[in-house]
């Protein structure tokens, strides 16, 4: 890529000072999970993810038993030979019984279980009841996500980025695309991952089961900023979703106030070649659509919260937040920056 990676990490803050404290905490963390589970396959929020999570608990249980048996056989077998009485091997027929039961029968049963459950759950999670309630096209970019809502005829309703709103309880069809490298679309709470491969369109179908905000992340190495290529899925009640979508479909509102209008000029000068703000002359396609930027919860592909401070920091120096990403920094005059921020904040 054209990226010139800086030697610095995201923001050079917390460091090893905290390491010791963390180590102490680590033991406790092993027992209970401290995260809020907003990016976890163990906290399923859709029927698909729930089935897979269930499968996991079965796997874990059975594996624990298999491991215990192996370790037990090993330990008992070793201890039997330890006395003074010399070797006490198993009789030949018992040995065969051990090998056949442990090495053939047990795995065969396990295989049967895996294949049957895999086919069944695969069919459930892969089910595609036509027509879907919502169709969303998600395109993997370097290193962010373009999101396009389509109507039943395939017409474009709205374009946004890095934040996908979906209605709870409705069947969603995602069309996964890429025009650059391979990415992989993954929201652990909602479903397994699916690759986005140039030259083909993959589909992912699921129905969010519960309102909430879930984090997803790219799961296929896609270059310098693979690590910070995240996004949010916001599942809301259908009515709320419809309202949101209708709002997204609208072009940006006229800026109010001189400061914001000045900000729009700055934007046209510096940003328009890469960003689109619908309803203005800004039509760039290289960066995310910013028409309703202020309505988003995060910036830079779910990397930093969408606050004024972070927004300003991002515009001034995106390379220190996401080293190597494709947006250059802008050393704007403070008044210009001020105006720009005022403008961007109005892009609800």
């Amino acid at each position: 890529m054209t990226a010139t990676p800086s030697p610095f990490g995201p923001s050079g803050r917390r460091r090893t000072a905290q390491a010791a404290a963390r180590l102490a905490a680590a033991g406790a963390l092993l027992a209970g999970c401290a995260s809020d589970g907003s990016q976890s396959a163990l906290n399923p929020k859709s029927p698909d993810a729930a089935l897979i999570a269930q499968l996991w608990w079965w796997f874990l249980g059975v594996s624990a038993v298999v491991l215990a048996v192996v370790v037990l056989v090993l330990a008992v077998g070793l201890l039997r030979g330890r006395g003074a009485q010399g070797a006490r091997p198993l009789p030949e027929s018992r040995r065969w019984a051990l090998v056949v039961s442990g090495g053939i029968v047990a795995p065969a049963v396990a295989i049967l279980g895996i294949v049957v459950s895999g086919l069944w759950i695969g069919r459930e999670t892969g089910a595609r009841p036509t027509p879907p309630d919502v169709t969303v096209e998600v395109a993997g970019k370097l290193w962010w996500w373009e999101v396009r809502y389509r109507d039943a005829q395939g017409g474009l309703i709205a374009t946004t980025a890095n934040e996908i709103h979906l209605p709870v309880g409705r069947m969603v069809r995602l069309l996964l695309l890429s025009d650059n490298v391979i990415h992989s679309f993954w929201v652990p709470n909602l479903d397994g991952k699916t690759d986005m491969i140039p030259g083909q369109v993959n589909e992912l179908w699921f129905a969010p089961g519960e309102a909430g905000t879930y984090r997803g992340q790219c799961a296929e190495l896609c270059g310098v900023q693979h690590a910070l290529m995240g996004f949010l899925v916001v599942a809301t009640e259908p009515a709320e979703f419809e309202a949101w979508l209708a709002h997204q479909a609208r072009p940006a509102a006229e800026p109010e106030g001189a400061l914001a209008r000045r900000g729009r000029e700055v934007f046209q000068q510096s940003c328009a070649r890469c960003h689109t703000v619908r309803g203005t002359a800004a039509r760039g396609g290289q960066g995310p659509d910013l028409t309703h930027l202020a309505g988003r919860r995060t910036l830079a592909a779910a990397t930093i919260p969408n606050t004024r401070g972070h927004l300003g920091g991002w515009i001034a120096d995106p390379q220190s937040i996401k080293p190597g990403n494709l947006m250059p920094g802008f050393a704007l005059d403070p008044p210009d920056l001020h105006a720009l921020l005022a403008y961007l904040e109005q892009l609800e």
Binding site: L74, R88, L98, V99, G103, A108
Partner: peptide, 18 residues
């Protein structure tokens, strides 16, 4: 898993009581 299991258990049988 089957050929691997067979090997693991052949070794376990060899180790048993040795």
């Amino acid at each position: 898993a089957i050929p691997n299991g067979v090997q693991v258990f052949c070794w376990l049988a060899s180790l048993w009581g040795a």
